[in-house]
């Protein structure tokens, strides 16, 4: 069974396997070869590795040109640079023409960006990508799921954005775990008091919160959502309708990410009391991943607090 040191390594391992089977697959770097842990790809397929230089707009535009000629490019670099600096190239030249370009954004959130500080911490990437029509947005929960999802999603038409980490994200799932693309995964089921809906590398913290709540007699369901767009609408509505309240948890600004997506869905189909946890619309700072996430409200204790308050405030 393959084990990986983080989501970057897992993603590239999947990419190499996909490329072995499909000669249309190519990789574009924006001086991100090492950061992406992609030297294995470049060594294995030197004629399929294109270095665009430290120029993300150029990297994405080159990917668009390759895809318009029938190839399947993967662009891997820091998530903030793909989604902010090259946002227009993603939107107008990849998404609008429905080209098969896959993006992997490194340093997702605080756990991914940690000591680099705000410039390299992507806390808006999911929200930005989610507003672009026709794009698929994935936030895997750990390295094992990243590997499974990257392989399973290789046939998706149109652009796909994967949110990856720094390599220090905790492992939650066993190596070799399968994934059903687009479907939420119920990780724990301690009752129907509250649904804890998690995306990305905070899943271990959400599981920790469910354990705290359980000891207090509050039963939580923990669901891990790897597809923020398109959302598993039926799966989420099922959770919302079966629980008294819901808490969304993400290592992202609470504007635009999973919390927004779930709240939008709830407004449409299943009005529910929802607490949206994540970075509360402010800029974070440098710091070690775990302590940083704790400070910005993503500790298991903070998640449990929010859930407890929500459940208590709920009219009987």
């Amino acid at each position: 069974m393959m084990e990986f040191k983080g989501s970057r390594e897992a993603f590239v391992a999947a990419l190499v396997e996909i490329a072995e089977k499909d000669p249309r697959v190519v990789f574009i770097s924006a001086d991100s070869l090492k950061a992406a842990r992609a030297t294995t790809f470049a060594d294995r397929f030197p004629d399929r590795y294109f270095e665009a230089g430290l120029a993300e707009q150029n990297a994405v535009a080159i990917a668009a040109g390759l895809a318009a000629c029938g190839l399947k490019p993967y662009v891997i670099t820091y998530g903030g640079f793909i989604t902010m600096r090259a946002c227009e190239q993603v939107r107008t030249f990849c998404a609008y023409p429905e080209l098969d370009v896959t993006f992997a954004g490194l340093n997702g959130g605080l756990i991914g960006g940690e000591r680099e500080g705000v410039t390299h911490q992507s806390i808006e990437d999911v929200g930005i990508m989610r507003t672009i029509p026709g794009i698929t947005v994935f936030e895997p929960a750990d390295a094992a799921e990243t590997y499974a999802l990257a392989k399973a999603a290789a046939g998706i038409r149109g652009p796909v954005y994967f949110r990856l980490g720094s390599g220090r994200e905790p492992d939650v799932f066993p190596a070799g775990i399968d994934v059903e693309v687009g479907k939420l995964r119920k990780v724990m089921d301690y009752g129907a008091d509250v649904a804890l809906i998690s995306t990305g590398f905070v899943l271990d913290r959400v599981i920790g919160a469910a354990e705290i709540l359980k000891k207090e007699g509050i039963g939580a369901v923990v669901a891990s959502v790897h597809a923020v767009k398109p959302l598993d609408a039926d799966g989420i509505v099922g959770l919302l309708s079966s629980c008294k309240a819901a808490v969304t948890v993400e290592d992202h600004n609470v504007v635009g990410g999973l919390g927004s997506a779930v709240a939008e869905l709830a407004a449409d189909r299943c009005p529910t009391r929802i607490a949206r946890l994540g970075i509360q619309d402010r800029f974070p700072e440098s710091g070690p991943a775990s302590e940083l996430a704790d400070k910005y409200g993503l500790s298991a204790a903070s998640i449990a607090d929010a859930a407890r308050k929500l459940v208590a405030a709920k009219p009987a």
Binding site: V26, D47, R48, F50, Q57, N58, A61, I62, A63, A64, G65, L66, A67, A68, C69, G70, L71, P73, Q89, F93
Partner: peptide, 13 residues
Amino acid sequence: SIGVGMALASAYT
């Protein structure tokens, strides 16, 4: 830049 991608595709394919 998009033309660069297409010219790379021309060579690779």
